[in-house]
Amino acid sequence: MRPNPNSNRLSDKAICIDCLNNEKYITSVLNSHASESASPQLRQIYIDLNRSCHQNEERIFSFMQQRGWYQVQSADPQQVHQTRSEFQPVGTQQQVPGYQSPVGYGQPSGIPQSGHWRH
């Protein structure tokens, strides 16, 4: 973390981090509100607000990326390949009688970490 020369206030980067965290938090709250709304109209409103929040999130994230403040790491191709091979056999949505899950199915290994947190 580099010191902010104008250190009597938050740095632009710290502000971005905070704003991004807030947007993430609000999207999760809105999602919960939508799920728990009995009124279809209110549910739709929360979904719309959630979308707007995600757009804010995306813009802040993009800005941070442009500034080099939010680095993401590409997935390991080997892990991608492994995940692909584990889930390839699923041809239909329903299991047929006698269907045998491939080894490891249901207990996947090597799943990349969620992209949410890469600090």
Partner: peptide, 28 residues
């Protein structure tokens, strides 16, 4: 924050985000 940031581009972005939340508030 809008009053604190030094980057004009960030300021404009935060103003947009603020307006977005204002619209959300008004809707609710």
């Amino acid at each position: 924050y809008i009053n604190q940031v030094t980057d004009p581009q960030l300021r404009a972005l935060l103003q947009d985000v603020q307006q977005s939340h204002q619209r959300s508030y008004d809707t609710l």
